[in-house]
Simulated assay, not measured.
Amino acid sequence: MSCKGIALVTGAAQGIGRAIALRLADNGFDVAVNDIAVSAELQSLVEEIQQRGRASSIHAADVSQDAQVREMIEAVVQNHGGLDVMVANAGVVGPSGMVIADVTVEEWDRVMNINARGTFLSYKYAGLQMVKQGRGGRIIGASSLTGKQGHNAQVTYSASKFAVRGLTQAAAIEFGSHGITVNAYAPGVIETPMFFGLLPGPEMRDGLKAQIPLKTFGVPTDIADFVSFIASKESKFITGQTISINGGLFFD
């Protein structure tokens, strides 16, 4: 199987990021993976990608730090020869149930630095590399249901995910003339370790599931399915969009 290009997925150690990395490998991409630190989960992911016949490498970096993101992109290019798909998936969620009056500046900065600034830096350095290469590319970010509809007691997370939508639209305009599309996904309730940490009890989960028209939660491969398409040549006329993947919990 010939290589369709080189992809980088941030926040890839588990959950949605891991599913995306494996799907892109299945699609024929060599896949570089990132998380805040090297871990057994990240190492096993690289092994799984390599078992699929694709090259892979680990790039530990804090996506909120300018120099670390720039150096990460440079290392991916040095290891693999370029960059064609950037998936800025890394993110954190603030404490559930914290209302505006209780949010500290430190907590606001922590969430915004990773979710908003981290996505900005990933877009920036990936976009610069793709422009330099002159062969187009795909930049894909992670928004959220709460980035389309503000939720009570999730002020920092919601604000950061709204920021991703605005960034995605602006970047799509800026990079469009270079054949680079910029889109984002907005998951609803997806069964990930982060989700189970927020809703630990079955009663809370059942109550939320009842609100979803499809009466089920999503799984990470539901997001990977979207990324698989948006990273492909067939998506060449789609840019600046943030696509809801939420089982009907919220309609645009």
Rank of each mutant, 00 (worst) to 15 (best):
S2N: 12
C3S: 13
K4L: 08
G5A: 01
I6L: 02
G11M: 03
A12Q: 01
Q14P: 00
G15D: 04
G15C: 00
I16T: 00
A19N: 01
A21Q: 03
L24A: 00
A25P: 05
A25F: 06
D26Y: 05
F29A: 00
A32F: 05
D35A: 13
V38Y: 12
Q43S: 14
L45Q: 06
E48Y: 04
I49K: 04
Q50K: 15
Q51P: 05
S64V: 06
S64R: 12
Q68F: 07
V69C: 03
R70L: 09
E71F: 02
L83Y: 10
V93M: 10
G94A: 12
G94V: 04
D102A: 12
V103S: 05
V103R: 04
M112T: 10
M112R: 01
N113T: 10
A116Q: 10
R117P: 07
T119K: 04
F120E: 04
Y123E: 10
A126F: 11
L128A: 15
Q129A: 15
V131C: 13
G136D: 10
I139H: 06
I140M: 10
A142C: 05
L145V: 06
G147E: 06
G147N: 07
Q149E: 15
Q154R: 13
Y157V: 00
A159R: 03
A159W: 03
A163K: 03
L167E: 02
T168A: 10
Q169M: 14
A172P: 04
E174Q: 08
G179E: 12
V182N: 06
V182M: 09
V182A: 05
A184H: 04
A184F: 06
V189K: 10
T192M: 04
P193A: 02
M194H: 01
G201T: 14
P202G: 01
E203G: 04
M204L: 14
D206V: 06
L208I: 15
L208D: 07
A210K: 15
I212A: 03
P213A: 07
K215I: 05
V219H: 12
D222R: 08
S228D: 12
A231I: 00
S232G: 14
S232D: 14
K236E: 02
F237S: 03
I238Y: 12
T242C: 15
I243V: 15
I245V: 15
N246H: 13
D252W: 15
